[in-house]
């Protein structure tokens, strides 16, 4: 197994340890796309090198070599040190692939529900759906033309200027395709659990991103923070029954409302270069490792097939 083969796995470990930190040093509008790209590329690269390792191990078995017309002995140098390690890689990539497919299926079903709900809500008048419900609630329903859903309970809780913040925040989610980033990063994390911190950072990042857009639109960061505070406290004060769905995974949700409000009380985040450059560089190492592995493996098998042709 060459160094290149380990590169994507090392990158995944590195991103698990520091990707979130790097992301938090960036403006959320930069962090979210970059982290999503890093997560996707690394997940694909890791899956690829694991699959190659598994294939290598199988190729060393005499019957398989016979079938593929290559010399088992010639495959070995550069391949995995043992069949066992290759088998472990194969098992891992199999389990991860199943996890990714399950996640994608779940996502498809949930998005289908969301789109069907959008359709039942009737023609898209203004992207805003007001529901008569005393429990304060507000969320974005994704779809081809997603909707901002707000309960009358929430609208009544907020003064006009803070209502404006809430609506601007939700519109930012729709206009910026924030769900797409969250779901792609979620898929990457399903395919490589090392990338979970990155996916959480993307979830946190889209909320921060929408907060920043809303604050810029109303031109008052403190007002945006107050809107968050009032909405958050109103929701917390409403009976738990109305929020039981969310409570189930509230613990896994990283977008802590307090931290978001505090961030709005600070000056707007600066657009730094080096954390972005570091993220891109690390991701390129993962991609490079996978590409190098692919090309050297191909060469190796070509040689092994040539050897087989000479002395089967």
């Amino acid at each position: 197994m060459s160094v290149a083969m380990w590169a994507p796995i090392l990158v995944a470990v590195l991103l698990a340890a520091s990707g979130g930190q790097l992301g938090r040093r960036l403006h959320p509008a930069v962090a979210v796309p970059l982290l999503t790209f890093a997560a996707l590329a690394t997940a694909l690269a890791t899956g690829f090198v694991l699959a190659v390792a598994a294939f290598d191990a199988m190729a060393m078995l005499a019957p398989v070599a016979q079938l593929g017309h290559w010399s088992a002995a010639a495959v070995r140098p550069g391949g995995p040190p043992s069949v066992l390690l290759g088998a472990a890689a194969g098992l891992t990539v199999g389990v991860l692939l199943v996890a990714a497919v399950r996640r994608a299926t779940r996502l498809g079903v949930d998005l289908g529900h969301a789109v069907a709900t959008c359709r039942r809500l009737g023609p898209d008048a203004d992207g805003l759906v007001v529901l008569r419900d005393d429990a304060p609630d507000a969320f974005v329903l994704p779809g081809v033309r997603g909707r901002v859903v707000v309960s009358t309970g929430m609208l009544r809780m907020l003064p006009p200027d803070e209502r404006r913040v809430l609506l601007a925040h939700e519109r930012a989610h729709l206009a910026g395709y924030h769900q797409l980033y969250v779901q792609l990063a979620g898929l990457a994390a399903a395919a490589n659990p090392l990338l979970r911190p990155l996916a959480r950072e993307v979830e946190r990042g889209v909320e921060r991103w929408a907060d920043e857009v809303a604050a810029a639109e109303v031109g008052d960061r403190r007002l945006a923070a107050r809107a968050l505070a009032r909405a958050g406290l109103a929701r917390a004060a409403s009976p738990a029954d109305s929020r039981w769905g969310l409570a189930l995974h509230a613990a896994g949700r990283p977008a802590a409302v307090g931290a978001r409000a505090l961030a709005l009380l600070q000056p707007p985040p600066r657009r730094r270069r080096w954390p972005a450059a570091a993220l891109i560089a690390v991701t390129l190492v993962a991609i490079g490792g996978a590409a190098w592995t692919g090309s050297t493996t191909e060469d190796r098998f070509e040689r092994a097939q040539a050897d087989y042709a000479v002395a089967p």
Binding site: R103, R106, D110, V140, H178, R235, A236, H249, A250, A255
Partner: peptide
């Protein structure tokens, strides 16, 4: 669940 809803405020 894939949690496709983006809430304005999560639980506190």
């Amino acid at each position: 669940r894939a949690s496709v809803l983006a809430s304005f405020v999560a639980d506190l």
